[in-house]
Amino acid sequence: MYTKEQIRFSCLGKTLILNFPWEENNSVFDFVLNFKNILFIYYKDQIEDITITFDSINLYFKNEYDHQKLRTEISKLLEDSKFNALIDYKKWKLPVCLDDSSNADLNLFFKGNKSKVKEYLDRFLSLEFRLVFYGFLPGFPYLSGLPDEMSIPRKVTPNNQTFKGSVSVGGSQVGIYPQNCPGGWNVIGNCPVPLFDIKKEIPTFIQAGDYIQFFQISKEEWIEVTDAITKGIDHPMLKRIKND
């Protein structure tokens, strides 16, 4: 997919960064995920973490390293590796409440034009997103897949309080707030299902590379599901989440 000439190497102290020319394109992202796995296995004992973003792979080395030697090694790994495009990424369906109380920012952006808001949300529900990485806060997913014409600039002054579960748009990125916190993204709805649960051995059930589509629920359903989750009981809607 990429040649070694296309990788831009840089570093932040003991973090080695590989940047790739980004394209909103699934096969490009599959390549990044693939190559990340290859690097993880190869450098396992030498790193404390490996992360990806939209256009980068980041290796957090435990100790100082020889930059030149690594560049050569990684370039060779890139040339020698076989890339497997057939990794089985999962598909998820997430409930989202889109009523007026959940999408004030969108109303503001469209200056109260209800039909434009509806048009935007209808199209939003038809899209398939992809979880690229977790960042910003524990369990905050960055999703790709929003068409350019649907991007909404980040707010100049962040909200004092963006609520847990807020499905929001920041530029052409989509994210879901894992907790209440100040936020500069435009809230368009609320997902009652927490994506990050610290009590679980693997706190996230959706992994980088997985696909996500949203389905609309009413405010009443949102309250019901939130209540069920808080009490730790099952709800029929939770069965709809996984869609393989």
């Binding site: 404390e48 973490d49 992360t51 990806i52 910003f136 524990p138 894992p178």
Partner: peptide
């Protein structure tokens, strides 16, 4: 908490 940056954990 090393090794959890990929989950967004500092």
């Amino acid at each position: 908490r090393k090794g959890y940056r990929h989950l967004g954990v500092p």
